[in-house]
Design a protein around this nucleic acid. Sequence first.
DNA 1: TCTGCATGCAGC
DNA 2: ACGCTGCATGCAGA
Length: 582
Amino acid sequence: MYRVVSESGSGGVLVQSVELTADGVAPSAAPQTLTEAEFHAYVLDEEPDATRWVWDDTARWYPGLLRAGIRVQRAHDLRLSHAILRNSELTADSGLARAAPTQWDGASAIADASAVAPATLFDFFASEPGSSDSDDSESAGGDALAEFTRQMDAVATSAEPAGLRLLLAAESVGALIAAEMQFAGLPWRTDIHAQLLTAELGPRVPYGTRPSRLEQLAGQIRTALGDPVLNPDSPQDVLKSLQRAGLRVTSTRAWELQELTHPVIAPLLEYKKRSRLLTANGWYWMDTWIVDGRFRPDYVPGGVVTGRWAAKGGGALQLPKQVRGAVVADDGWKLVVADAAQLEPRILAALSRDMAMADAGRGTDLYAGIVARGVVETRDQAKIAMLGAMYGATSGESGRLLPSLAKAYPRALALTEAAARAGERGDVVSTRLGRSSPRPGERWLATQAQAYDPAASSTDERRARSEARDWGRFTRNFIVQGSAAEWALCWMAEIRKALLVLGVQHPQPESTGAAAGPFSEAPHLVFFLHDEVIVHAPAERVEQVVALIHEAAARAGRLLFGEFPVDFPLTVAVVDSYADAK
DNA sequence: TCTGCATGCAGC
DNA sequence: ACGCTGCATGCAGA
């Protein structure tokens, strides 16, 4: 049963129950207009009944439900689904994809389209809620229902409806999980964090002041360079000063400095490292982002073109290893930290149905497996070669190792090559489940067209070739990174489903009440980082949690690749502190 | 003074 | 000439 939720004109909630029939989406009951409180009661009442909640934006509806102590199991996020269907080559012929941009496309898509074709601007405003003759509540609800109908039609008439259905479900459950993880928060000990900062930087200082340890290192840098007024925070000044001291450097990047021998190098690298800690995750960050012992970043599901999540604020997806010691489980609880070992190469093996590569990764470290088969000599070489194949390296050690890899795994390498060639031609590529790469922009197309002009200069041609190869590397990586993101979504969805069952088996005490929220007693997801999850769990339940995470990985593999025998082994650690996970 | 771009580095 | 990001800071031009 699907229930389409939207705002009614008067600030209430409009709920329309619908069913999927052979002819499409059909209302199964009269629409209801509810107050917010009635809506909460309604969701609580209907939730056990395998309902899928259809709404424009999970981030807009779900946090309020969570605050009221209500979890939902299934959703369909119209905004995220629209973005996928609008762009997928599998639904390119659908009404949804052929229509002019609407409010379901981002504001930027509308702006782009209206710049090219003025007529679409009119279409957009003509279809805005409230601009029609019908009353507001009908218009608002009708928008969501009409959009849902278009989406279901696009899926049903596509070449791969099953894959797309899975993709939309996975993307939508991702949005639920993102809201739940933000609600629960990552346990964060500010006392430990502060201790770490003091150890690295010196006692806390007001914002805008340089801490004592940095001041001391700045002094050493100035002395070593004989430059008493040098500002170590200015890369330009530092570069000039290094060059004056006779060092041949072209930038102040750490990896370049590491190659040099000079008294300034050690303090300068120390300064950069600690200064980074201060600006990225210092006291100011802590005050801003840690509330009541929890880090609650804004996750953005589907925020990256490949389908990976992004995050805004707090740098949640770049949490440095340096500060992970502050992530500590509550008393009596544990962190179950799980990451998928060599996820992307395994995805590539499965995508290309490369049995030899799948064999190399069976039940073990895939890179070690490649070495064991004599393809390359060391694990490090195997890793560099694989990354080169997926990123499109042509030179260096990676480039040199590629032929051996191509000889051993021709199917896998043929797939990445084909994706690259497609991109170079300006063609679209798609992930396992049907998320398609964006079309190249007008500027790219113009550069390519220009190179075919008889009057094109060799510079024009070189630039066109270079940009074509850039785009080819993007599409080459897109299919692997994007399919890996789909695996990760399915993995998390399966983890969540199993955790929900655990929660039901161990019901929360009545006294907990809504105020404590749905996560106070049961194991729950608290963090996600592309191929890694953290579950916060009561100590006595960690064995069950570890088992269900493994089982979820196997299920995710079968969801995406059926019975193709590729393993997705995990590294799992049960720890008190995130710093101890690796 | 504001804004946009470049730099450098954190993550996968 | 190796893919995808976010963020803080410095810096130049508006």
